[in-house]
Simulated scan of single mutants.
Amino acid sequence: MPKLTKMSTCSYYSSGDQAAECGRRSGDHRSQRIVGGERAVHGEWPWQVSLHQRNPHTGQLLSQHCGGTLIGPSWVLTAAHCIVDPLFGFTIPPVFWIVKMGHIELSDRQPPHLAGVSKIITHKYFDAKTWNHDIALVKLREPLALDQMTGVNTVCLPGASASFEGHLCHVTGWGKVTENGSDSELLQKIAVPVIPYNDCYKKYESINPITPGMVCAGGDQPNKGPCVGDSGGPLQCRREDGAWVQIGVTSWGVGCARQNYPSVYVKISDYVNWIYFHLAKDYLAGLRAARTPRAPHRTDGRTL
């Protein structure tokens, strides 16, 4: 049986508000590793982020663990298996995570943005054996300023009924450049076709079930697609109006970019309501906390 591979190493914004500004780049970036990919250039994918863990003993920032995308000034979308401990199954606490943004080189010690994490939300039905519901939200400690000067922007999210089957879309990440190789120091990109659900289902029927909450892309050519370390990053397509919309979260596959085995992504259109529900819930909780009067305190710090 082929070996399945996870693509990793171990405020509320309405869809209308987001669509007005999201998915725009600072210039017209044409194609200048993802396996078989090309190097990205600064500002080409301004919503791409890298997730890093801190050493719990020394506090040292470790190498890139997974990718992710900025979907709002305070929120990053990624894969649940990036966030959940693979051995014990618990969500790794926010204090152990750092998010880098606005960079294409992993070794950049002073990226434009370096943010701590205040909250993590993983899908409550995430299944680490089948990779079903492999989606998570990461909240930054402080919201970002989004404009061309910062070089950071959000990606658009699709509507619940959106379909990009047959489109040529792009995958980006810092994962391995060959199945048995090392991670890429520079952000990589590659164009892959989104394939019909039934075609993907048949290819994986005897290996691992493809559910309606998954979307597949690539597999038409050998050595062209995501690999270990690319998990959590985006499968993104360009709309007719020129804006980029993220249709998938890199999740799993057989090996790395093997021919006839498409890479499998979380189908965001099936989870967009889940995403907005949790963003709205957090926003409303923040409003309630801000409006709740604090109990009076005495000068010695005790509550009256």
Rank of each mutant, 00 (worst) to 15 (best):
R24K: 15
R25L: 05
G27W: 09
G27P: 00
D28Y: 06
D28C: 00
D28Q: 12
H29D: 07
S31E: 10
Q32Y: 11
Q32S: 13
R33F: 12
R33L: 14
I34W: 00
V35M: 13
V35Q: 09
G36F: 01
G36P: 04
G37R: 01
G37C: 04
E38P: 06
E38R: 11
R39G: 13
R39A: 14
R39M: 10
V41A: 07
G43Y: 01
G43W: 00
G43I: 02
G43V: 01
P46Y: 09
P46A: 07
W47V: 03
W47S: 03
W47Y: 10
Q48P: 02
V49Q: 07
V49I: 13
V49G: 04
S50C: 08
S50K: 07
H52S: 05
H52K: 04
Q53N: 10
Q53K: 15
N55T: 06
P56V: 02
H57V: 11
T58I: 08
L61R: 13
L61H: 09
L62R: 15
L62M: 14
S63K: 14
H65S: 13
H65V: 00
H65T: 08
C66F: 08
C66P: 10
C66K: 09
C66E: 05
G67W: 06
G68W: 08
G68C: 10
G68K: 03
I71K: 03
G72M: 09
G72C: 06
G72P: 04
P73G: 02
S74P: 05
W75H: 05
W75S: 05
W75I: 04
L77D: 05
H81G: 01
C82A: 03
I83A: 02
D85Y: 11
P86V: 06
L87D: 13
F88E: 14
F88V: 14
T91N: 06
I92L: 10
I92H: 07
P93M: 04
P94D: 11
P94Y: 12
V95F: 12
V95G: 10
V95A: 14
V95K: 15
F96E: 15
F96K: 15
F96P: 09
W97F: 11
W97L: 04
I98N: 13
I98S: 10
I98D: 11
V99Q: 06
V99G: 00
M101D: 06
G102W: 03
H103L: 04
I104A: 02
I104D: 04
L106A: 03
L106S: 08
S107D: 14
R109F: 12
R109Q: 15
R109H: 15
Q110L: 11
P111H: 00
P111Q: 00
P112I: 01
L114H: 10
L114V: 12
L114G: 03
G116F: 07
G116D: 12
V117W: 09
V117P: 10
V117E: 08
V117M: 09
I120H: 01
I120Q: 02
I121T: 09
I121P: 06
T122A: 02
T122W: 02
H123T: 07
K124N: 11
Y125P: 05
F126M: 02
F126N: 00
D127A: 00
A128M: 11
T130N: 07
W131C: 09
W131Y: 15
N132W: 06
H133T: 03
H133N: 14
H133V: 03
I135Q: 03
I135G: 01
L137Y: 03
V138Q: 07
